[in-house]
Simulated scan of single mutants.
Amino acid sequence: MIIGGALGRWGRWIAFAFLVAIGLATMADAHPADEGDPWPGLMVNGLERHYLLHLPAGWQASAGALPLVIVLHGAAGDARSTADMTGFSPLADRGRFIAVYPEGTSIGVDPPRQTWNAGFCCGAAVRNHVDDLAFLGALIDRLAAEYPVDRRRIYLTGLSNGAMLAYRFAAQFPEKIAAIAPVAGTIGGTAGADQPPISIARPDRPVPVLIIHGMLDGYVLYRGGVSPNIGIPGRFNVSVDDAVRFWAAADGCGARSTRDVTSDGRVIFQAYGDCRDRAEVRLVALALGPHEWPVAIERPGGRTEPTAALIWRFFKQHQR
Rank of each mutant, 00 (worst) to 15 (best):
29 D>I: 13
119 G>L: 04
43 M>A: 13
272 Y>K: 09
264 D>A: 14
13 W>F: 10
3 I>R: 12
265 G>T: 03
88 F>P: 07
82 T>E: 04
255 A>P: 12
106 S>F: 11
102 P>V: 03
240 V>A: 02
172 Q>R: 15
73 H>P: 07
56 P>E: 03
16 F>H: 08
34 D>K: 13
216 L>E: 14
92 A>N: 05
246 F>G: 01
296 A>W: 03
168 R>A: 13
70 I>F: 11
15 A>H: 00
104 G>Q: 04
261 V>P: 05
196 P>C: 09
306 P>G: 10
285 A>G: 13
33 A>V: 08
167 Y>K: 05
188 G>V: 12
211 I>Y: 10
49 R>D: 00
83 A>T: 02
296 A>M: 01
291 H>I: 00
94 R>D: 13
42 L>D: 04
59 W>K: 03
20 V>R: 12
72 L>A: 03
199 S>L: 15
69 V>R: 09
237 N>P: 03
235 R>Y: 06
202 R>V: 14
167 Y>E: 10
248 A>N: 01
158 G>N: 02
107 I>E: 14
92 A>G: 05
142 R>W: 09
82 T>W: 07
273 G>Y: 02
123 G>S: 13
30 A>F: 05
88 F>M: 14
17 A>R: 10
82 T>K: 03
15 A>I: 06
11 G>F: 00
134 A>T: 06
11 G>D: 02
26 T>D: 11
237 N>H: 10
9 R>P: 08
196 P>W: 07
78 D>Q: 14
194 D>N: 15
143 L>M: 06
154 I>W: 05
18 F>H: 10
61 A>S: 12
126 V>D: 01
303 R>G: 13
151 R>K: 13
111 P>R: 10
4 G>E: 12
136 L>G: 00
317 Q>L: 12
27 M>A: 11
100 V>E: 07
111 P>V: 02
315 F>K: 08
45 N>E: 15
87 G>Q: 04
201 A>E: 14
260 D>R: 15
284 V>A: 01
282 R>G: 09
39 W>F: 14
139 L>F: 12
245 R>C: 04
239 S>H: 02
213 H>D: 10
66 L>T: 08
295 V>Y: 08
139 L>S: 05
63 A>D: 15
127 R>V: 11
208 P>L: 11
241 D>S: 12
220 V>G: 08
279 A>S: 13
154 I>P: 06
35 E>T: 09
109 V>Q: 08
60 Q>R: 14
